[in-house]
C-alpha cells in the first residue's frame, strides 16, 4: 500500500491548485438572480390573472345572482397544501419530500432541451431508517449493506430518462464504450427493447398507473454471477447491478410525454420489512408539475 501511495503522490507532485472560488460565488449569485427574476415575473403574471378572473367572477355574480352572498369561496390562496421539503443528502427524517431530478440530460448528447427543462419533480414519502444521495438519485437503507448484496435495497428516482441506450453486452469488461443499441424516447420503445434483449431476463411487462400517470412495469432479474464483469449495466444512463441476483422492479412512466424510470432494487435476501418499505415509497410517489429551470 505504501508503494501505491508513493506512486500516487509522485503523480500529483506537480499538480497546480485548481478552481476559482470567486468565479463560483459569482456564478451562484447570477443563478439566484435569474431565479428571483423568474419568480417575480411569474408572480406578476399570477397577480394579473387573479385580478382578471376576480373581476370576471364579480361581474358574473352581480349579473346572475342578486341574492345575498354566502360564505366566501375558497380560492387558490387559501390552499392548505403543505410545501414539501427538498430531499437532502444523508439520513432522512420520516416524512414527505420533493425530489428534483438533477440534470439527467445533457443536451449535447442529443437530449431535447425542452424536455430537460420540463422534467417533473417527484413527491415521495420516506420512512425512518433510510438515507438519500441526490447525486445518485438514490434512497437506500441506512444499513451496512446499503444497496449491496445480499440484503440491500435502493429506490432510484428518475435517473434513466427518455434518452437511453442499451448495451448488447451488459457484462462490461471495463467501462470504456457507449451503449450500442439505440432506444426511442417513449415508454414502449424502452420496454420493448429491454424485453427483446436476449441477455436481459425480465418478467412480462404489465400496464400500470403510478402517481397519476400511465406506464409499464416489469422486473429485471440480474444474473447470479457477475464476478467476471467490471460492471453489469443493462443500459445507460442507469445505475449498474449492485450485486449478484440484484432485482430491479421498474416502472417506466410517461409523465406528460417524458419517460421516467422509477427503480426499486433489492435481493432475494432483502428482508420483507425493507421490501415493504421500498414498495410503500413507490406507492407514495406523485409526479409534481414540471417547472422551468434556468
Amino acid at each position: 500500500m505504501s508503494g501505491l501511495r508513493a506512486s500516487l503522490d509522485e503523480m500529483v507532485a506537480d499538480t497546480p491548485v485548481y478552481g476559482d472560488l470567486d468565479r463560483a460565488i459569482q456564478q451562484v449569485a447570477r443563478g439566484r438572480q435569474r431565479h428571483v427574476r423568474l419568480g417575480m415575473g411569474l408572480a406578476a403574471v399570477a397577480a394579473v390573472l387573479v385580478l382578471v378572473v376576480g373581476a370576471v367572477a364579480v361581474n358574473r355574480d352581480r349579473a346572475e345572482d342578486p341574492q345575498p352572498a354566502g360564505p366566501p369561496p375558497t380560492t387558490a390562496t387559501d390552499s392548505t397544501a403543505p410545501t414539501l421539503r427538498a430531499l437532502a443528502d444523508g439520513p432522512v427524517e420520516p416524512g414527505r419530500y420533493r425530489y428534483s431530478i438533477q440534470d439527467p440530460c445533457d443536451p449535447r448528447m442529443g437530449c431535447s432541451p425542452q424536455a430537460a427543462n420540463s422534467l417533473p419533480d417527484i413527491a415521495v414519502t420516506v420512512p425512518a431508517g433510510w438515507n438519500a444521495t441526490n447525486e445518485f438519485h438514490l434512497i437506500e437503507p441506512a444499513t451496512q449493506s446499503g444497496t449491496g448484496a445480499p440484503d440491500g435495497a435502493g429506490l432510484v428516482l428518475g435517473w434513466t430518462t427518455y434518452h437511453v441506450g442499451l448495451y448488447s453486452e451488459p457484462c462490461r469488461p471495463v467501462e470504456d464504450s457507449a451503449p450500442d443499441l439505440p432506444v426511442g424516447p417513449t415508454v414502449d420503445a424502452f420496454v420493448d427493447a429491454v424485453t427483446a434483449h436476449p441477455k436481459l431476463h425480465v418478467t412480462e411487462p404489465t400496464r400500470v398507473r403510478l402517481g397519476g400517470y400511465r406506464g409499464r412495469f416489469f422486473t429485471l432479474m440480474g444474473p447470479g454471477d457477475i464476478s467476471g464483469c467490471a460492471e453489469w449495466r443493462p443500459w445507460d444512463p442507469s445505475p449498474y447491478l449492485q450485486g449478484p441476483r440484484n432485482r430491479w422492479d421498474l416502472w417506466a412512466m410517461d409523465v406528460d410525454g417524458v419517460r421516467l424510470l422509477i427503480m426499486a432494487g433489492y435481493y432475494p435476501g432483502t428482508s420483507k420489512a425493507v421490501r415493504t418499505e421500498l414498495h410503500d415509497m413507490v406507492d407514495s410517489i406523485q409526479f409534481l408539475p414540471s417547472k422551468i429551470r434556468p
Binding site: 438515507n131 444521495t133 447525486e135 445518485f136 438514490l138 437506500e140 451496512q144 449493506s145 446499503g146 444497496t147 449491496g148 448484496a149 440491500g152 471495463v174 467490471a230 449492485q242 450485486g243
Partner: peptide
C-alpha cells in the same frame, strides 16, 4: 461514495487486479 462497504471491498479488489 454512497455505496456499501462490501461494494468498496469488491471494487478495490477488482481495481487492484486490473
Amino acid at each position: 461514495l454512497a455505496i456499501s462497504p462490501n461494494t468498496v471491498k469488491s471494487q478495490t479488489r477488482v481495481a487492484l487486479q486490473r
